[in-house]
Design a protein around this nucleic acid. Structure first.
Lengths: 238, 238
DNA sequence: ACATGATAGTTGTCTATACCACTATACTTT
DNA sequence: AAAGTATAGTGGTATAGACAACTATCATGT
């Protein structure tokens, strides 16, 4: 179980073993693990080495120490990132609705300053633009204009958007980092007909720039959401 | 500098000292700190104890070790929590505007179902309600209605809101956990005059329930923000 | 000029030991 | 029965020493 001759450090072998026991369910949440002295004697390893392994796992949040009592398997916290970057489809599924899409337009264009600035590419360099109507449970939810720089996606076809576009990006070996998004209220204008609402109804205007892991912007999205069907929800921590 | 007789652990004193040197700017980003052996000899402390202090700071991300080279002051990452719960005043300051407040009303009331449900208290139990006009750089920015349960704040006076209300809550020994907030677009109605906008202008309707560390709701806020002056901005990670 | 090797200095790993502070339990005293 | 007291077991802190693995530099040899 522990091989002292191995070039793999003993403390690391111990870590892996403990991680395994927890993964396999041999050790359950709240369980007391063997004391440092017990492990030290059993495997004939110095207690300081045991402590190194345990300390690392404590730092990772897998174990918790209690003075005078022992070391326990920590309750696993489901802590998900406060806001996870998701596309329209994932968003709708989370809200329990069936996402749908109606493609309106897909063109190649020279990026105007308003967009090239956001994507941080040269003005009037090539890009793709897709206009779509987004549906939820079959009814119009949002009108979306998505622009991408051709530098990052040389050969783009509209079919690439049929499934999760973010997954497609990741399948190209690109790492998605995050996004910055702004939301403001507006009054519906010419998109009213598409969204099937009355002209002058309240809508949410959302602009989003998404970044790769290295900070390179890779998409600029401008969406108009129906105010009567969509609420933007956030969680915050102090 | 290091007191071996102190009940404060030596490794912790060392941590504090190093943290201080970095804070004060004696050690700059990328600087090489004295080697473990050097510190060990200088302060006549065992190298393992030095390592414990350094390891903790490495775990915190303040230092980085490089085998065969030394230990360096890490480049500080500005990584702030994705969304931090802030009140109006903090929010405006972050946006570089001077926050202001005009108190409109402060009453005691029996909480109607729509509010008691959010605060998870008994319907028609006592509560406080404050109505305020929020200013940024002297101009109206939002109209806000804030409701609190009397159970948590038995003796509340409007003066308590003059400075940061969240800090006041924390000064009572309560721990603020976080909040859930929804945002939707709307068309301004009777509050138009207060906000100094035309009736029918786009506004953001924001509802927020804030929770203590144990999950107990402690405030319900309904705000109406001027759409021409306020954008809601979020960052997301994948 | 270039490769090789020696060397000193760094962090990484590991041992054996010691004492302290805290917790729970069993035992004793009141 | 209650209160106090020992005691064994736990993690927390600290020491001194050893060797390994890695990096940079300098001296040496070709």
């Amino acid at each position: 179980m522990i091989n002292k001759k191995s070039p793999v450090p003993i403390y690391y072998q111990l870590e892996e073993w403990l991680r395994g026991e927890i993964d396999k369910g041999e050790l359950l949440e709240g369980d007391l693990i063997p004391s440092e002295r017990a492990l030290s004697e059993k495997y004939e390893i110095s207690r300081m080495t045991i402590r190194q392994a345990v300390s690392n796992l404590v730092n990772e949040g897998l174990l918790t120490r209690e003075k005078g009592k022992g070391t326990f398997v920590a309750k696993k916290k489901v802590e998900q990132p406060l806001i996870r970057l998701t596309g329209f489809s994932e968003d709708m599924k989370q809200r329990g609705m069936e996402p749908g899409t109606k493609r309106l337009d897909f063109i190649q264009l020279d990026l105007p300053p308003s967009i090239s600035k956001e994507l941080r590419v040269e003005t009037y360099s090539k890009g793709y633009q897709m206009k779509r109507l987004r549906l939820a449970d079959g009814l119009p939810m949002a009108y979306e204009v998505l622009t991408l720089p051709k530098t990052l996606f040389p050969d783009l076809t509209p079919e690439k958007f049929d499934h999760s576009f973010y997954e497609y990006v990741e399948s190209l070996g690109l790492k998605i980092g995050g996004a910055e998004q702004s939301i403001e209220p507006a009054i519906s204008k010419e998109e009213s007909a598409l969204l099937n609402i009355e002209r002058g109804s309240p809508v949410l205007l959302m602009k989003r720039v998404s970044y790769l892991g290295d900070g390179t912007p890779f998409e600029f999205v401008k969406s108009i959401y129906r105010g009567d069907r969509y609420k933007f929800i956030t969680e915050m921590k102090r």
